[in-house]
């Protein structure tokens, strides 16, 4: 599925994930949590299609377990429902808090799965390399090395199998010895082959003064517009939370702020942020549909 939101500047992508997840996680406000879960699921479906359904079904037990565990261990709260066998009370508040924690966890997991899809390695390298250039190169080299290492270990393992020496051969001790042998081969391989990499770096002038950082990303007008909107919404949300206009208390009694001229726009602002990726995608779809019908 083509995702237009991913084509925005990495800073936009990153800021959105941070603000949606950050506010959802720290406020633990029920309205925010519901918005966050629903929009996260929508975006996940949009990104990964059917593959996502199984992942989402797997989230259900996570939610149930988390919400069940809390009342077993936490006995705070005013509304007493019943006593456990061992004499500990179960309260309504602890159940609700457990559910809030469960939905927070699930929403974070769902959003993280979207994050993984959108924030590819090069975007992360770019973002963090901006502040510390050396880190970006190291990250990039690590990302190059890891798959290379994996391919090689597979080859070595196959080669050892050919002389009857794979981790799947022999008894436990034999298996361990064969495994160690493979690792030792990999160690010499890595050292030996990095010499050539070092030569290639040196010969292309690595280590000279004044290294610059090249990136393929450009911050254009549509990025600016979107960043402005996002910052506005985010600032308003932070203000509301700081002023206590949007707040929630789980213990000793469940207490949520009333719907006021402050809080309703705050819900809308959060909804705007959380639904932004899906909205951007849908608007693009509509645009294309329209363009095509004109042709």
């Amino acid at each position: 599925m083509s995702d237009t939101f991913s084509t925005y500047h990495p800073i936009i992508n990153f800021c959105l994930f941070v603000s949606v997840m950050g506010i959802g996680m720290f406020s633990l406000h029920p309205v925010f949590l519901v918005i966050s879960i629903l929009s996260g699921i929508l975006y996940c479906l949009r990104l990964k299609g059917r593959k996502c359904v199984r992942f989402l079904l797997g989230m259900l037990p996570v939610f149930l377990v988390t919400s069940a565990i809390n009342p077993l261990f936490s006995h705070q709260g005013m509304t007493l429902l019943f006593y456990l066998r061992d004499g500990n009370p179960v309260t309504l508040e602890s159940i609700i808090y457990g559910m809030a924690m469960g939905s927070m966890l699930v929403s974070m997991l769902v959003w993280f799965s979207c994050f993984n899809e959108v924030m590819t390695s090069d975007k992360i390298v770019y973002l963090f390399g901006k502040s510390i250039p050396a880190v970006s190169l190291v990250l990039s080299m690590v990302l190059r090395f890891v798959p290379k290492f994996q391919t090689q270990i597979r080859k070595v393992s196959d080669a050892q199998k050919c002389i009857g020496r794979d981790v799947s051969d022999g008894g436990t001790v034999q298996k361990a010895r064969h495994g160690l042998k493979i690792l030792s081969i990999m160690a010499s391989w890595a050292l030996e082959n990095s010499v050539e990499t070092a030569d290639s770096m040196k010969s292309r002038g690595y280590g000279l003064r004044g290294r610059t950082n090249f990136s393929i990303y450009r911050f254009d007008t549509r990025d600016k517009t979107l960043l402005g909107l996002m910052l506005g919404a985010f600032a308003y949300l932070v203000l509301c939370i700081a002023l206590g206009k949007v707040k929630t208390l789980y213990y000793p009694l469940l207490e949520v702020n009333p719907c006021t001229g402050w809080s309703v726009p705050a819900y809308l602002a959060y909804g705007f942020l959380a639904l932004l990726p899906v909205t951007v995608d849908i608007m693009e779809d509509i645009k294309w549909h329209y363009l095509r019908s004109e042709i």
């Binding site: 080299m141 190059r144 290639s200 770096m201 610059t212 990136s215």
Partner: peptide, 24 residues
């Protein structure tokens, strides 16, 4: 394999130029 330093094709192309400090 061993001569490639970075993980992306475009980054590899730019690697030498980055080292020499060329502007973006």
């Amino acid at each position: 394999d061993n001569q490639l330093v970075t993980d992306k094709v475009w980054h590899e192309l730019a690697f030498g130029l980055e080292n020499l400090g060329y502007p973006q």
